[in-house]
Design a protein around this nucleic acid. Sequence first.
RNA 1: GGAGAGAUGGCCGAGUGGUCGAAGGCGCUCCCCUGCUAAGGGAGUAUAGGCUCAAAAGGCUUAUCGAGGGUUCGAAUCCCUCUCUCUCCGCCA
Length: 427
Amino acid sequence: MLDIQLLRSDLEGVAKRLADRGFTLDVEAFQALEFRRKTIQTETQELQARRNQLSKQIGQAKAKGEDATALMAQVTAQADQLKALERQLHEVQARLDDMLLVIPNVPHASVPAGKSAEDNPEVRRVGTPRQFGFAVKDHVDIGAGLGMLDFDAASKISGARFMLLKGPLARLHRAIAQFMLDIHTGEHGYTEIYAPYLVNAASMTGTGQLPKFEEDLFAVPRSDGEKFYLIPTAEVPVTNIVRDEIIAGDKLPLKFVCHTPCFRSEAGSYGKDTRGMIRQHQFDKVELVQITHPSRSYELLEELTGHAETILKKLDLPYRTVTLCTGDMGFSAAKTYDIEVWLPGQNAYREISSCSNFEAFQARRMQARFRNEKGKTELVHTLNGSGLAVGRTLVAIMENYQNADGSVTVPEALRPYMGGTNAIAPR
RNA sequence: GGAGAGAUGGCCGAGUGGUCGAAGGCGCUCCCCUGCUAAGGGAGUAUAGGCUCAAAAGGCUUAUCGAGGGUUCGAAUCCCUCUCUCUCCGCCA
């Protein structure tokens, strides 16, 4: 959520910056609502002040044993009008809130302008794609050849966009997550979190998934008529740890790492990535979250992105990092780096991590604050990034470490997690 | 699933219809005293808004005692609904 003060003071400027990311801010509608709010609020508060004053006098009069009926009549006379105004004010403020909740974040000044993914500048490229002396297969064929990746069973059990792993490949999937958690906790100073996979609407609103993107989420009904939402990323439960909290300034930054399954309906992505495990309704991810002092959030975004990249370096997977341009950024982000891993089966770099600084956008929705140097409360900045998507890391390993005989070499860093196994071979 | 208790400021805790944004304590900040330490004395210390002001300072004002609704001239206090927490019983990985 943007600061309403910013909209009041620089509406045209905000509209212009939002236009860069393809969002049209309805300036007239905002101004009209603001004008109404101002008028009604002023009038309401005047009547409230009058009521409070008269009520006080009534109290004093009664204490002295005097007759207060005249004063009471005065309050009664304006009661209906006040009630009507309070109701209107309530309604206008709710509408203003609704409007604010669906306005995306303003891109940071360092974000390059652009319309789509094609305009994302590359920041760096690390590692060299391997030369294969044989015809490379994609992970679907490799998995089928191994007899350890079964989409038929998954579609029988659940439907499209699910997968089932077996044997050593399932273990490799588990090993990847364990490895990532160990690196981030042991070398990067993150605290491991285990969090709920079902969350309430307030949490989803806090991080920005609601109210605008409900169709992207899975939900389960509750007996009380409300619903639980399945988390689309650990960002949601983990960032909401600090919702409605005031954190001591010297505790910042908070650094959390959390491995969870992620559930996405993938509405509107029909036909995209239908082959393989690139785009699933359920996938695992190790997520990094930082809660920071506003003055350090951009510095820490670089650091966090580096933490995610470390995993790829340790796995010896070639990748590149791009800055998302204004037109390609997510709703809540002020700046995002995508890390893309090389997939020989697709002959392309594909997203495996997305690292963002949300500035105070989520913090304002969540009322997540800290006590600053002056002892005043101030909104924190929130950051997060995948460190990394587990399923896509598995894909990358299968494709980059494939051998001519259909086996897959286990990257050295993962062997301790695989009981010392060097390779996964067809059985 | 059944029965009961509770939710107040950064924290603890008082407050059952009137001048209560809220006693007291702790914590924190500043000052004083004391030749270290410890102790003592004083002052201050919630948040979010609105209007005003060129801006800042300031001034006026509203809301907030788990959430929402209601009663009342007036609600932390009374009524209703909901949420959450705790205790006991039952069930359970």
